[in-house]
Simulated assay, not measured.
Amino acid sequence: MNLKHFYPVILTLAAVSALSLVAQQSSTPIAASAKTSATHKQAAQSQDEGQRVFEQHCSRCHNAPDGFSPRISGTVVRHMRVRASLSKHDEEALLRFFNP
């Protein structure tokens, strides 16, 4: 067989592999930024949910705290969960609200 028949095949394979490499490299940053954006949206939603729980239940007797350490906020929320009849979901939302 003559080599002139293999050149178009080789060029086509090289072009396809180069295009797939470029497509893969360009899609990676977009996927990473989309994942980061989704994570930020989830954090904002859980923060809003924790604030909603605080305003519904805790603000009747307490002002919003300036800040708790994670250890202290865990203890406080566990104790107040029983007194305020909070669900486990509400407890977790409050913990995320106190410690973003």
Rank of each mutant, 00 (worst) to 15 (best):
S46G: 10
Q47E: 14
D48K: 14
D48S: 15
D48Q: 14
E49Q: 10
E49P: 03
E49Y: 09
G50H: 01
Q51H: 13
Q51T: 08
Q51A: 12
R52W: 06
R52A: 07
V53G: 00
V53W: 04
V53Y: 02
E55W: 01
E55Y: 04
E55N: 08
Q56T: 04
Q56Y: 00
Q56N: 11
H57V: 02
H57R: 08
C58P: 01
C58I: 02
C58K: 01
C58G: 02
S59Y: 03
S59M: 08
S59Q: 08
S59F: 01
R60L: 13
R60N: 12
C61G: 05
C61A: 00
C61Y: 03
C61M: 00
H62C: 00
N63E: 15
N63A: 15
N63G: 14
A64P: 04
A64S: 08
P65Q: 08
D66L: 15
D66A: 14
D66Q: 14
G67Q: 03
G67R: 01
G67S: 00
F68K: 03
F68N: 09
F68A: 08
S69D: 13
S69V: 07
S69P: 09
S69Q: 10
P70C: 11
P70T: 08
P70L: 11
P70A: 14
R71D: 13
R71G: 13
R71Y: 12
R71T: 14
I72Q: 12
S73Q: 08
S73R: 06
S73L: 12
S73T: 10
S73C: 12
G74I: 02
G74K: 02
T75R: 08
T75E: 06
T75I: 06
T75F: 02
V76D: 04
V77C: 02
V77W: 01
V77Q: 04
R78Y: 11
R78P: 10
R78K: 13
R78D: 14
H79M: 09
H79K: 11
M80F: 01
M80R: 01
M80K: 02
V82T: 12
V82H: 11
V82W: 09
V82P: 10
R83Y: 13
R83E: 15
R83C: 12
R83F: 13
A84K: 05
A84C: 04
A84Y: 10
A84M: 09
S85C: 05
S85G: 06
L86V: 04
L86W: 02
S87K: 03
S87I: 02
S87W: 01
K88W: 13
K88F: 13
H89E: 14
H89G: 10
H89R: 12
H89C: 09
H89K: 11
D90N: 09
D90T: 07
E91V: 05
E91S: 10
E91L: 07
E91W: 02
E92Y: 06
E92P: 04
E92R: 11
E92N: 10
A93H: 04
A93K: 03
L94K: 03
L94A: 03
